[in-house]
């Protein structure tokens, strides 16, 4: 390239590196330091205090249960929707738009929307009332009904964040040349065989990144649960928030944050292992 200095690319990436160093790497290290510091001394005291906290194990359990229930549901639903949209001819644009609207909706707003539906005298109960299933306002979101509260969070999460998986999968499907499916069709594959032997393997990279992104974000779930149940359903990030804001204890909050960062990283590694993407096996 004429008249271009060899330093130009470094000059171009430098600002973003600097930024990521200050706002990603540094606070990352800082979290670890804070988590292991009590009163200026290096100590595992924050972790001991966190583990002894009444809410810690329920928060762990709830967070993992949410991830384990929500993520597979979202992927299955998004995959179904992506395949449905592939076949669509009329009205495809409008359906695409509708199905992707939740992508722009915050977890807080999603929690509030489902609060309107699931609250004691909300729309869900109204439907049940008209069907004769219940006789009056009924509570689903209190600490007395942990199971229904949990599923309320699951529903709100599936409602809100399936769109992200859907968009990634549709984009991935668009990258697969049509000829592969046609070849499979000509060589006798039924629609299911085509999906199983051709589409799904070629969609692996998109599936992988959807799973990584969604799992990491699901570990971060916070406002949905908070909007629906307050602290009735404790989860890890929510506890970090409480320790930081209400209890003013940065050390324990940092310990919680450390746990979240660790499980996120672990889940990413798991997905990278489980779904092996071999670049040379892609078109």
């Amino acid at each position: 390239m004429p008249a271009r200095s060899p330093y130009l690319p470094y000059l171009l990436i430098a600002p973003s590196i600097l930024f990521l160093a200050v706002f990603f790497l540094w606070p990352f290290a800082q979290t670890v330091v804070m988590a292991f510091t009590v009163d200026g001394q290096t100590s595992t005291g924050n972790f001991a205090r966190m583990a002894a906290d009444l809410n810690f194990w329920p928060a762990m359990g709830n967070t993992f249960a949410l991830v384990i229930v929500v993520v597979p549901l979202q992927v299955a639903l998004a995959l179904t929707m992506a395949v449905m949209i592939q076949k669509m001819t009329t009205g495809r644009d409008i359906v695409l738009w509708i199905w992707t609207i939740p992508l722009g909706i915050s977890d807080l707003a999603a929690g509030l929307a489902w609060l309107a539906i699931l609250s004691n005298n909300g729309y869900f109960n109204t439907v049940l009332f008209h069907l004769g299933i219940i006789s009056g306002p009924t509570g689903w979101l209190s600490y007395e009904t942990p199971l229904t509260l949990f599923f309320a969070v699951v529903v709100a999460e599936v409602w809100r964040a399936t769109a992200l998986v859907f968009v990634i999968l549709v984009a991935g499907l668009q990258l697969i040349p049509k000829e592969y499916a046609e070849a499979a069709e000509v060589f006798g594959a039924s629609p299911w065989q085509r999906f199983r032997h051709v589409t799904l393997p070629l969609l692996k990279p998109s599936l992988q990144s959807a799973l990584i992104l969604r799992t990491v974000l699901a570990f971060e779930v916070f406002a949905v649960a908070y909007a629906l149940g307050g602290r009735n359903i404790p989860i890890l990030v929510g506890e970090a928030y409480t320790w930081m804001n209400a209890n003013q204890n940065t050390g324990v909050a940092a310990a919680y944050a450390g746990v979240v960062l660790l499980v996120s990283l672990a889940s990413t590694i798991v997905w990278l292992r489980v779904i092996r993407v071999r670049r040379e096996h892609l078109p």
């Binding site: 606070p27 800082q30 971060e220 944050a257």
Partner: peptide, 10 residues
């Protein structure tokens, strides 16, 4: 691989 918003904490 990380929920970056958490890093607001430190």
């Amino acid at each position: 691989a990380f929920p970056l918003a958490i890093l607001a904490l430190p």
